[in-house]
Design a protein around this nucleic acid. Structure first.
Lengths: 201, 201
DNA sequence: AGAATAATAGACCGATCGTCTAGTTGCAAG
DNA sequence: CTTGCAACTAGACGATCGGTCTATTATTCT
């Protein structure tokens, strides 16, 4: 081919650096200069790999959700440990643990959704698709739980999946403003109550 | 005194304009030049009324939440129409209706929480206080509902208030990415299910 | 060896950012 | 009518923004 890359995969390295930095500032406030100096990549390279900052943003979101599905999607998949109910609870427990462990970390959906939806249509779509996939995974897991008898069949799976995901998105958002686990713990208590059999069919 | 103001209250006028504009862009992306030209206020005046953009941001948030409490807090207050359960449902129904009516409108908490929490500590605090006040109002309303018998007493009021508010925050966030009422409608269905008596004490 | 090309390098562009200071304006007291 | 002074404003400031451009470097294929 040609000249060797600075890194095994420079494009990937820029995206990873962006994902790290974005937790601390908004997408608009994340300057290319800062991003590239942090990544140790010259500016000329950026526009070799991305046609614009927006294009970079889309790629970062796509990459993030793809990685998220790999890391966390397995937890929810049928055939993994436990029944449907246990898998859902494990998923949300991990969500809580992530925040308890490291303060800065938060999911990109929470961090960027509000800003990016108004800023860039392509980025909005990338976000939407990524989030929708999670909701669908949750809905599937709810159905599996209803089949295996661990989740009461009266819950509408799709609406409940939306509600659960919304609940945890909002709790993560409040965690950011409050710097306290209380919203997330309340979400966990509520989730446990919802997924517990309630005698009502 | 001295020279008369351009508007009866120029500072207030700038804040109101900011609140309008912020729905369409992030706080970082909202430039002072744009804000002031939209408001019809000369640029030089800005630092007469605010000591910095951050100071303006804090004032905008404080003003917003103060107005929000006036407009919407009454709906939740004891002594208003209906029992506790009906008042809560009316509050969230209005939340849904607001989104159904006008696409652009969304609450400032949803729009700014993620961005501002990392950007500015004073703005984060303003946001936190405003949101906390709403959660406390919800919790009070839950307690009132438990007293008047319209809400089942097994629900922990504080955690449930957090969960309800998180749920609707998250649903509003997803509304922004999805451009669809589905998340909000799912939140409403879930809320109705939660506030319905369930025989389980 | 030489052509082709992928990637790096960073100076540079106009626009816009938030901020600041020097200045003008208009009313009130003398 | 003047002067004092606070309220307000005009516009410049340096920094930084996203983006472009030309040049150079290192590699592979012919």
């Amino acid at each position: 081919m040609a000249r060797p890359s600075l890194y095994p995969d420079t494009r990937e390295h820029i995206l990873a650096t962006g994902e790290e930095l974005i937790h601390g500032r908004s997408f608009t406030a994340l300057g290319l200069t800062e991003l590239l100096s942090e990544a140790g990549v010259p500016k000329g390279s950026f526009y070799h790999y991305f046609k614009s900052k927006e294009d970079f943003g889309v790629a970062m979101l796509t990459r993030y959700f793809s990685g998220y599905r790999e890391r966390v999607g397995g937890l929810l998949t049928d055939g993994s440990v436990g029944n449907g109910r246990e898998r859902l609870l494990a998923y949300f427990q991990q969500w809580l643990d992530n925040h308890a462990r490291c303060e800065a970390q938060s999911c990109l959906a929470v961090k960027l959704a509000a800003e990016v939806s108004d800023l860039s249509e392509p980025m909005r779509v990338a976000l939407d698709e990524g989030m929708l996939a999670i909701v669908q995974r949750l809905a599937a897991c709810l159905r599996e739980g209803q089949t295996d008898g661990s989740i009461k069949p009266s819950l509408p799976p799709d609406d409940t999946a939306y509600a659960l995901y919304s609940l945890w998105l909002g709790a993560a958002l409040m965690y950011k403003t409050q710097h306290s686990l209380q919203p997330l713990q309340a979400a966990m208590i509520h989730t446990q109550g919802l997924l517990l059999p309630c005698s009502a069919a």
